[in-house]
């Protein structure tokens, strides 16, 4: 337990030191929430703006932490030989990954608490199933962490940086986060519906609004939650 706890503390410290990571995980989601929550600019698929915006931004927060932040930090640690070196210590790779997972979970808790609090300040009044929302967040975390590690373990660090940030923007714009997929052009919407972000945001918007989430969103989310980690385990290279 001592190595795992020490590693968790070290990984947390390293995350706090990365200013760009704080910007992506907390700064951008907060900025988008406050900006679009104050100015009613986005299409919301017929819902109250905040009923769409807050759950969608929570989905974005999961993407930023589990995919972007994890991919970039792990990619550079791989490039710097940190993963290789730690593989020959008693910490071992399973505990290294456990520590990283715990840090992702910790940051997500901070994000959810902060974004929910700000959402409530803006007038959001959720009426949903917290347990189902939690399940969706867990599935989303699994899916995006798998994708993040897949990038980090197969691409050069610089390429991981570009792909992770690029994916973040694409998913934000056409992955059901900033704009509901039903508001996208038909062809694009059909493709967007298959993305993990659309699955996660779709489920969160529904269950936090007191509705039953469409089964299609759950299925998409569950498939990505399995496929992401499986692909990462299959193709991840430690050096």
């Amino acid at each position: 337990m001592k190595p795992l706890w020490a590693q968790f503390q070290a990984e947390t410290r390293m995350s706090m030191r990365r200013g760009e990571s704080l910007l992506v995980t907390l700064g951008i989601p907060l900025l988008l929430l406050v900006f679009f929550g104050t100015l009613d600019l986005l299409p919301t698929g017929g819902r109250e703006p905040l009923d769409f915006l807050v759950p969608s931004i929570l989905a974005l927060a999961v993407i930023s932490t589990a995919m972007v932040n994890l991919a970039i930090s792990t990619g550079f640690e791989r490039q710097y030989g940190v993963l290789k070196r730690l593989g020959t210590t008693p910490l071992g790779r399973p505990r290294l990954m456990a520590a990283k997972t715990a840090v992702v979970a910790l940051i997500e808790v901070v994000q959810v608490v902060t974004l929910t609090f700000v959402g409530l300040l803006l007038g959001w009044r959720p009426d949903g199933n917290v347990a189902l929302a939690l399940v969706a967040v867990l599935l989303g975390t699994s899916a995006f962490a798998g994708l993040g590690l897949l990038m980090a373990g197969t691409l050069r660090a610089e390429a991981t940086l570009a792909v992770a940030n690029g994916s973040y923007i694409v998913l934000l714009l056409v992955g059901g986060i900033a704009v509901p997929i039903e508001s996208l052009p038909a062809g694009l919407g059909a493709v967007a519906a298959l993305t993990p972000s659309a699955g996660l945001a779709g489920v969160l918007v529904a269950v936090m609004g007191g509705e039953a989430a469409p089964i299609g969103h759950w299925v998409v989310l569950a498939i990505w939650a399995i496929a992401g980690p499986v692909a990462a385990v299959r193709w991840f290279r430690w050096e």
Binding site: M14, Y80, G81, V82, K84, R85, T88, T89, P90
Partner: peptide
Amino acid sequence: APDIGVMLQQGGVYP
């Protein structure tokens, strides 16, 4: 792992 020590040619430490 508890019984070996490894010094890589380069890197191996969080920057």
